[in-house]
Write a protein that binds this DNA or RNA. Structure first.
Length: 574
DNA sequence: GCCGTTTTCGGCCCGACTGTTTTCAGTCG
């Protein structure tokens, strides 16, 4: 069993314990342990078997959790979890994801109604049954109904980062187990969509057939949906991501990769073009209609070339003008991960990060960067122990003083909250001490669009603000973007030289492609940054770069592809 | 339930807002 699975069971039990009203600190211990286990490189299962090692070596795991882990390894669950699962319906965990309903409210609901599924909950709200209960009213019912709709929209989808993890794991596994030399991920994952519905893998050459059996036998596969000569479909992991693996002859690899990468719209347009040229395109190759002779299929490049097109990067394949651009030599030279020379949004232990300034600097060096910016939270985020004016100034001084020892240029920064009325959360004279201020919205997401627009415009009036952080505030699969007049804000940002962040955190990926393209057309400049709360998050930059590519950006559109001096010029105060 | 030690138990992140109240519990971040 993978560490993630142990962590998931602990986390899930902690959720149920909240409904049961267990001691809050005990619940937090479960959550801490889950986080520690998920982040531990050593395998828990291994540690449990090895008499030389103890799981209590993992910080956050003591005697109690160690016993729980042992029980999980033995039979896949543990006593307290079973007990809670008997007490609460299976839908309880889902219901906790509905906004507006926390553990306390759910406990009340469960004690009053026969409530098993989200559907039941929806019905209760529609029939206005919640209003009969203490401290629940019409507004809550509306909020819950809205949230249920949002939840349904996102059900069955997975973050791009999860797809990346599974793709990497399975590619390595299939190479090892079946000797499959060439396993490639296609589909929306390859196009870099921010969420994926399933994972499409293609295997070709030596070991491709064997890979089908190997996949079906993978320890994390919970269900084999189907397996034949050429294709296997499975459910993978606790969350049940569907993985499809296809075994292909080498001569069709390019055609299959093209076909299964999509998007559907791109492929329809491409097939239309082929038809007009007297050709026909399918997953096996490109052939002449008149005599059926194959003209291409082994690689994507030869297929696009035979259609009179430059090879189109997967991120652009949405039928949004890329085919026309490829025909006329007008494709952009998309930004690449290697172009990024500094990460300019990250947190440390000073607020809610997990590492020190020194550790983040070392991680930045390891990424090969020339510079980083440390941008901890401001005081409005009390939960994150945000900085007040005094700590802001002290921090800026500290960075200036120790700068040379860190071995990488470190800009002193701040991710400063934009308050409800648009006023910055930190006084201007304290902000002025810093090299770089990111302005971000972290509260009052449901303001009227007009008020939200004014709020952001007002924040940009601060001469210290250089970057608008995660500009739409969406949290993937969880919360929609807040509504405001995007174009107006972008125009003002352009006028003031404020850059727009492309936040590479896998839960956000904000801005997304259509808005990036729109903003670029309006003259905006961008930074791509990870919002890292841990050194290992710096690697998420690839997802941000992929978003930028989907938005047709070139390196020159993204300011942190510039060297340290150019970047410094760009962040000079207006 | 974990941790750290003042070695046997006390501390563990907390402020703002919302919708419901008529003084505050629950949720969120």
């Amino acid at each position: 069993m993978e560490n993630r699975e142990f962590a998931r069971l602990l986390e899930e039990t902690a959720d149920l314990m909240e409904i049961a009203g267990d001691d809050g600190f005990r619940i937090r211990s479960y959550r801490n342990a889950a986080a520690a286990i998920a982040g531990t490189p050593a395998r828990v299962e291994e540690m449990l078997r090895n008499p030389e090692r103890k799981v209590t070596e993992i910080p956050g795991v003591g005697k109690g959790i160690a016993a729980v882990l042992g029980e999980i390894a033995e039979r896949g669950s543990f006593e307290r979890r079973d007990e809670l699962l008997r007490k609460y319906p299976p839908g309880a965990l889902e219901m906790l994801k509905i906004q507006g309903l926390g553990p306390k409210s759910l406990a009340v609901l469960f004690s009053h109604f026969e409530l098993k599924t989200i559907d039941d909950l929806e019905k209760l709200c529609q029939e206005h049954k919640l209003q009969d209960l203490p401290r629940m009213g019409a507004k809550l019912e509306e909020k819950v109904l809205r949230s249920i709709a949002q939840y349904r929209k996102s059900a069955g989808r997975f973050l791009l980062s999860y797809g990346a993890r599974v793709a990497a794991e399975l590619t390595a596994y299939l190479g090892e187990k079946a000797g499959a030399r060439q396993v490639t991920a296609a589909g929306s994952y390859r196009r870099g969509r921010e969420t994926i519905g399933d994972l499409d893998l293609l295997a070709t050459g030596v070991g491709a057939r064997e890979a089908l059996d190997a996949l079906a036998g993978h320890p994390s596969v919970t269900e084999v949906l189907g397996k034949g000569e050429n294709k296997a479909s499975v459910k993978y992991g606790g969350e049940g991501l569907q993985v499809d693996l296809r075994a292909l002859p080498e001569e069709s690899f390019g055609a299959a990769l093209q076909y299964f990468t999509g998007s559907k719209e791109h492929n329809v347009a491409l097939r239309g073009r082929a038809q007009r040229m007297g050709l026909t395109l399918n997953e096996y190759g490109l052939a002449r209609v008149e005599d059926g002779v194959r003209v291409a299929g082994a690689t994507e490049e030869e297929i696009y070339a035979a259609l009179g097109l430059a090879w189109i990067p997967p991120e652009l394949r949405e039928n949004q003008g890329e085919i026309e651009a490829a025909a006329s030599g007008g494709l952009p030279k998309l930004i690449e991960v290697g172009d990024v020379r500094g990460d300019v949004h990250m947190h440390t232990r000073e607020t809610d990060g997990r590492a020190t300034l020194e550790e983040m600097a070392a991680a930045g060096r390891a990424m090969g960067y020339e510079y980083i910016a440390i941008t901890d939270h401001s005081k409005a985020l009390a939960m994150a122990n945000g900085l007040d004016e005094k700590r802001v100034v002290a921090f800026a001084r500290r960075v200036r003083k120790m700068g040379p020892e860190l071995g990488i240029r470190v800009f002193s920064g701040l991710e400063c909250d934009i308050r409800k009325d648009g006023v910055m959360d930190i006084e201007e004279d304290a902000l002025a001490e810093l090299d770089l201020v990111i302005a971000s919205v972290h509260s009052h997401f449901s303001l009227e669009p007009a008020a939200m627009t004014e709020r952001i415009l007002r924040a940009m009036e601060s001469p210290s603000v250089r970057i608008l952080g995660h500009p739409t505030g969406r949290v993937l699969l969880h919360r929609d973007a807040y509504a405001y007049e995007f174009e107006r804000v972008v125009k003002e940002a352009v006028r003031r030289g404020v850059m727009l962040e492309i936040n590479a955190s896998p839960e956000r990926l904000d801005l997304h492609a259509p808005l990036i393209r729109l903003a670029k057309a309006l003259g905006a400049r961008f930074v791509i940054s990870t919002d890292a709360h841990d050194p290992k998050h710096l690697a998420n930059i690839r997802f941000g770069v992929q978003m930028a590519r989907r938005g047709w950006l070139e390196a020159r559109d993204v300011i942190n592809t510039q060297g340290v001096e150019e970047f410094q010029k760009a962040i000079q105060k207006s």
